[in-house]
Design a protein around this nucleic acid. Sequence first.
DNA 1: AATGCGGGGAC
DNA 2: GTCCCAGCATT
Length: 357
Amino acid sequence: MVTPGFAERLVEWQQVHGRHGLPWQGTSDAYRIWVSEIMLQQTQVTAVVPYYQRFMRSFPDVGSLASASEDHVLQHWSGLGYYARARNLRRAARLLMSEHGGVFPRTAAVIETLPGIGRSTAAAIAAFAFGESGAILDGNVKRVLARYFGVRGWPGDPRVQAVLWAHAESLMPGRDVGIYTQAQMDLGSLVCVRGRPRCGECPVRPDCVAHREQLTASIPGRPPKKVLPHRRAALLVCVHAGTVLLEKRPPTGVWGGLWSLPETDGNDAEAIKCIANRYGVSVADCEPLTSFEHGFTHFTLALEPWLVRVAAAAPATHEPGRMWLALDDAVGAALPAPIKRLLRSLARETGRLFSRA
DNA sequence: AATGCGGGGAC
DNA sequence: GTCCCAGCATT
């Protein structure tokens, strides 16, 4: 009697206890699987589901995504974060049409050459869509393997990550690779969770180093904590006839390619008026709104919105990269989440905003 | 090797 | 409040 291996136990567990009803499961359509994998990068399943449904309705296949405008694609990503994913997704779709005849490549090695797809995502797509055997290493697998093998240290550390990749490869089964790939993710997200793992439900507990040595609380190790720098920026909320002036952000950097409010480092009414004039806006009056903070991964941004009432919109404001958007349409535009929230709250107060104009 | 890149869910 | 999530690209 041979003791079942790690992969066999996970596959068996997956059939009974794994997740099966997610919108991107039950298909071998590489396109549908690809989109889900990109959305799920650094993003939890519950957050992805509604975005995924809407995205697939608008872009049901590679061709429709390739022919869509970047702005249209970003609209569907608004609020999901990491917007380079959306730009890369569209870019890859166009590459698929122009370089691959519209056919999704069938090997992880080729899939990985597409923008936005790294080693782990390529292996996952190849496993789910084509049954190709290959290790993955996402947040779930890192946690599971670090505990199972007793690997200390922070999994974000490249040296730790290299060890985990080697372990992941060593455990690859020769069959059921799609189920096994899903099993690793599901075990990590349902059982081998960060806090209070449910070791009583774990199929590989007997061989788990962290469980045996009571290290599940300290493995995986924590990243070095650092103090986030604070930055501030003023936002120009130029309102005119129920519309607001938006500016397209540069293609790279924070909120890359999205539409947002004109931003400046000015911090008094005179500076704001001066900047507004530079946008071709004839300022009637100007008042500060309630400031708020927005946290990014690597800094905290204090945003100070200024309400700029516009006497008349100048013709120069129809340049590319600028537009006047009806406040009520903000919800459907390619805007960052905090900007969208701000505009929604302004839309509710439109009466008050214009009452003194 | 280090850094940039979002937003929200879970606790 | 903190931590972290189906990571990748760039430098």
